[in-house]
Design a protein around this nucleic acid. Structure first.
Length: 429
RNA sequence: GCGGUUGUGGCGAAGUGGUUAACGCACCGGAUUGUGAUUCCGGCAUUCGGGGGUUCAAUUCCCCUCAGUCGCCCCA
C-alpha cells in the first residue's frame, strides 16, 4: 500500500484522539459558560462567499483556496475560514430577528488552505471560533477576547501574549487608503505586478507583499494609527479599558493587520511565548467586522469574532510541558481457557458492559500468560479467569491486578462484587 | 512560490564501494502444558523511498524524481 495521506493533512490516531476530545470538551464547556451556541455549517460553500467576504485581493483567496467545479458547474470552495459561513447563515436564517441579541455563535471543524506545510500549519486544520453578531459595544470585544484567553488558561497555558490594534472605521480606512495610494502611486512601476494591481483595489496589501518588502517606500508608508478618526480612537480606548477591567494584559501593535479584508476597528492576535515553540507563534486571531453582514445581504449588523487552531493549541500545551496523562478506562479483562470457558467469557464480557462496567477480552486465542500480559498492558483493574474448574463451580477467579489478590466469585454475584470493590478502590484514592 | 534537511524491518537507530546489513523496542515461540515484573534461549530486512547512471561490484558515488520534516513569506 503506497497511498498516503494527502500533503498537509494528518491522521489523528487513537493514541492522540483522547487529547483532542479533552480539548474539545474544554472548549464546549467554556462556550457554555459564556453562552455561545454551536453552529454547524457545510465544509464547502459557493466560492463567491469567500471572495466577497475575505476579499479577492487577499492571499487566502488568491492562492490558498481549494476551489472546484461540481457536476452542475457550480464553483465551490472548501472553507478556508469560518466567519464567512457563520455570517452567511446569520443572514440566510434571519438571525437578526432572533429575540436574543447579540447572536452568539461558535463553531469547530476543519478548514482548508493550500499552503506549504510546516510546524503548526496544515492544509486541513481544525479551527474553533466564535462570532458575536448584533452588538457594537466595546464590552463585547472584551468578552470575545476573554473567552479565547480563558480557553488557553484552562488548557494550562501561561506563556501567552495578547496583541491588539485598531484598524478604524470605514472613514478612517478610506483616508488611510487615500494616503497610501498617494504614497505609492508615483513609484508604483518599481513594484511587482501584484502590487500594481493592489494599488487601487487594496493598497494596504502592498505592505505585506513578499516580493517588494525591501522597497524604501515600505518604511515610510503612512501608518493607520495616524488616520483613526475620533470615534474610532474612542472606541479603541473603551476596548482597552474593558480589557483592563478584566485584568487581561495586552500589547498594542500598530502594525497588526489581519490577512482578511472584512476586519475593522478591533483586531487582535494571541501568541504563544513558550520557548521551543515552532516558528509560527500565532495561536488565535480575530477582530471586528462591522459591515460584513451587510456585504452579504443582511442588515447593518456589527460583529466580532476570533478563530483558533486546535493543532497549535496542542503544540503550545506540549511546548509548555503540560502533560495529559490518560487514565485507563478498562475495568475488567476476561480470560476464558478452553472452548466452554470461552463461550462463558464472551457472555460475561457482554453482561459486564451492559452493567456499565468496561470490559474486554482476547480474540486471538492466545495462551494464558499472553492474555495476562495484555490485561496488564491495558491497565485493567481486574482480570476474570475462567477455566474448567471455575465452570464447574459456576464461578470466576477475580484477580485484582494492583494488589495481585484473587478470589473465587460466583457468576451470579460478579457484577456486584466488581462494582463494590471498584467503588472502595475509588474511595481510597 | 523559495530555501535547508532527512528517507535503512511495525517503531527507533548504526553502518560499509565487495561473499551473512549492527543494536534497541515491539512482536512470536520456548524455559514455566492455568497468571501479569525480571531473567535466559530461539525467531523476526533475499534488502536499504522510486527511477536512471558510473563501476567487475552500489544501500553506500553521481543525476533525476517522489515523500516526510523544518524555515522564509503569510497565516490559525
Amino acid at each position: 500500500m503506497d497511498i498516503k495521506v494527502p500533503r498537509g493533512t494528518q491522521d489523528i490516531l487513537p493514541s492522540e484522539s483522547g487529547k483532542w476530545q479533552a480539548i474539545e470538551a474544554l472548549i464546549r464547556e467554556q462556550c457554555r459558560m459564556y453562552q455561545y451556541k454551536e453552529i454547524r455549517t457545510p465544509v464547502f460553500e459557493h466560492t463567491e462567499l469567500f471572495t466577497r467576504s475575505v476579499g479577492d485581493t487577499t492571499d487566502i483567496v488568491q492562492k490558498e483556496m481549494y476551489t472546484f467545479q461540481d457536476r452542475g458547474n457550480r464553483s465551490l470552495t472548501l472553507r478556508p475560514e469560518g466567519t464567512a459561513s457563520a455570517v452567511r447563515a446569520f443572514v440566510e436564517h434571519k438571525m437578526f430577528g432572533y429575540a436574543n441579541q447579540p447572536v452568539k455563535l461558535y463553531y469547530m471543524g476543519p478548514m482548508f488552505r493550500y499552503e506549504r506545510q510546516q510546524a503548526g500549519r496544515y492544509r486541513q486544520f481544525v479551527q474553533f471560533g466564535i462570532e458575536a453578531i448584533g452588538s457594537a459595544d466595546p464590552a463585547i470585544d472584551a468578552e470575545v477576547i476573554s473567552l479565547a484567553m480563558s480557553v488557553y488558561q484552562n488548557a494550562g497555558l501561561k506563556k501567552l501574549k495578547l496583541v491588539i490594534n485598531s484598524l478604524g472605521d470605514t472613514e478612517s480606512r478610506v483616508s488611510h487608503k487615500t494616503a497610501l495610494v498617494n504614497h505609492f502611486e508615483p513609484h508604483i512601476e518599481e513594484f511587482c505586478s501584484d502590487c500594481q494591481n493592489r494599488l487601487q483595489k487594496n493598497p494596504l496589501r502592498i505592505l505585506d507583499c513578499k516580493v517588494d518588502h525591501n522597497h524604501p517606500l515600505m518604511e515610510t508608508a503612512p501608518s493607520l494609527a495616524d488616520f483613526l478618526n475620533e470615534e474610532s480612537a474612542a472606541y479603541f480606548e473603551k476596548v482597552k479599558e474593558y480589557l483592563t477591567i478584566l485584568n487581561i494584559p495586552f500589547e498594542i501593535d500598530p502594525n497588526l493587520v489581519r490577512g482578511l479584508d472584512y476586519y475593522n476597528h478591533t483586531a487582535f492576535e494571541i501568541m504563544s511565548a513558550a520557548e521551543g515553540f515552532g516558528a509560527i507563534t500565532t495561536l488565535a486571531g480575530g477582530g471586528r467586522y462591522n459591515g460584513l453582514v451587510e456585504e452579504l445581504g443582511g442588515p447593518d449588523a456589527p460583529g466580532i469574532g476570533f478563530a483558533m487552531s486546535i493543532e497549535r493549541l496542542l503544540l503550545a500545551i506540549e511546548a509548555e510541558n503540560n502533560e495529559w496523562t490518560e487514565k485507563s478506562t478498562l475495568d475488567v479483562y476476561v480470560i476464558g481457557l478452553g472452548e466452554a470457558a470461552k463461550k462463558k467469557a464472551v457472555e460475561l464480557t457482554y453482561q459486564l458492559r451492559q452493567q456499565k462496567i468496561t470490559a474486554d477480552m482476547d480474540y486471538l486465542d492466545r495462551k494464558m500468560k499472553t492474555q495476562m500480559k495484555s490485561a496488564d498492558r491495558l491497565q485493567a483493574k481486574y482480570v476474570l479467569v475462567i477455566g474448567d474448574d471455575e465452570l464447574e463451580q459456576d464461578s470466576a477467579m477475580v484477580k485484582d491486578l494492583a494488589t495481585g489478590a484473587q478470589s473465587l466469585v460466583p457468576f451470579s454475584s460478579l457484577v456486584d462484587h466488581i462494582k463494590t470493590s471498584s467503588t472502595q478502590l475509588g474511595a481510597e484514592e
